[in-house]
Each structure stands twice: as structure tokens, then as C-alpha cells.
């Protein structure tokens, strides 16, 4: 089995898996970074959203060999030390999660949005977040949390 070196959360990880293995299984089952979730496996739900070189991507449809060339992989575990990223704080403030299963993906997508566009309109938020499903129906609070984080963002900048 080939050996791959991955740059995840600013650390170097080595993993020996078959070519073609999805990055999601590598993160979760081989490296124990289980904050990134599996829900559909076909890029329809966004539960597995991570950042590759700052862009939000669905780990379930990425294969390991294409991301072992030094790309910077960021997962929820690497977002902040103790959950103190402004987006995470806004998530706590609005008490957004219910079951919580979709929330890593929601947060990673929201962080990418605010990087790209620090002051998004409500419609821009909805359109950017539309790929991430939440069965518990926490969308109202997700929207509110992103607006709060965006305001704090601009207060900081």
C-alpha cells in the first residue's frame, strides 16, 4: 500500500492506504479526526466539509492521492484551539446545534464564506450555505450566527 504524507491542521500526517481511498475515511478512520462527518458520500449534504488551501470542499469525494502534495488541509479540529473562533462563538451564542451532526460542516462552510466575503448579505449567506443540510432544522440560528460573526469580524477589522 502506498504511503501518503498529508498536511492537516499544520501538522504532517503519514498514512498507508489504498490509492482511491476517500479523504473522509482517511481523516476519520485512519487519523481519528472524527469532527468531520459522513452523511451522504456524494457531495450532497456537506457534513464532511473541510478546507483545502482555504477553499471549502467535500472530503467524501476527494481521493487521498490528490491531496498529498502539500495542500493545506484544515478540519474543524484545526479551526481553533478550544472552539474560540468567532464563528464557533457565534454558534454558541445562538445555541445553533441540535443533534450537532451537521455542524462541523456548517461551521467550516461559514468560516470560508466570511473569509471570502466578510460582510455577506442575507441572500449571499443562504446561497453560500445551501449545500449543507441540517435535518434538525437549525437553519434560522445558523443564519443568525453567521450574521453575528460577520458583525464581530468587522468590529475586529
Amino acid at each position: 500500500m502506498p504511503l501518503y504524507t498529508l498536511n492537516i491542521n499544520n501538522n504532517s500526517f503519514e498514512v498507508e492506504v489504498n490509492k482511491g481511498t476517500s479523504l473522509l475515511w482517511v481523516l476519520r478512520e485512519h487519523l481519528g479526526l472524527t469532527g468531520t462527518k459522513y452523511s451522504c458520500g456524494i457531495a450532497q449534504c456537506g457534513s464532511c466539509t473541510i478546507h483545502i488551501d482555504q477553499k471549502p470542499m467535500r472530503a467524501c469525494i476527494l481521493t487521498v492521492e490528490n491531496f498529498a502534495m502539500g495542500q493545506k488541509i484544515l478540519t474543524i479540529e484545526g479551526l481553533s484551539e478550544k472552539g474560540e473562533h468567532p464563528v464557533q462563538k457565534a454558534w454558541i451564542k445562538t445555541q445553533a446545534p441540535q443533534c450537532g451532526y451537521c455542524q462541523s460542516g456548517q461551521i467550516m462552510q461559514a468560516v470560508a464564506l466570511l473569509k471570502e466575503k466578510p460582510k455577506p448579505s442575507r441572500e449571499e449567506i443562504k446561497s453560500y450555505m445551501n449545500g449543507i443540510l441540517c435535518r434538525c432544522g437549525t437553519y434560522m440560528r445558523i443564519l443568525e450566527a453567521i450574521e453575528i460573526a460577520s458583525e464581530e469580524n468587522s468590529a475586529i477589522n
Binding site: T34, G35, E77, G83, I92, P97, G100
Partner: peptide, 19 residues
């Protein structure tokens, strides 16, 4: 809610997360 902090930092454990 007491479960929310772990649900925003990715550390909350669902059965499938165990290894």
C-alpha cells in the same frame, strides 16, 4: 445547553466516531 460547546469544536462523540 451543556452539549453545545463540544458540538461546535468537533469533539462531541457519536458512536461512529469511536476507534
Amino acid at each position: 445547553r451543556v452539549d453545545i460547546p463540544d458540538k461546535v469544536n468537533g469533539s462531541a462523540k457519536f458512536a461512529g466516531d469511536l476507534r
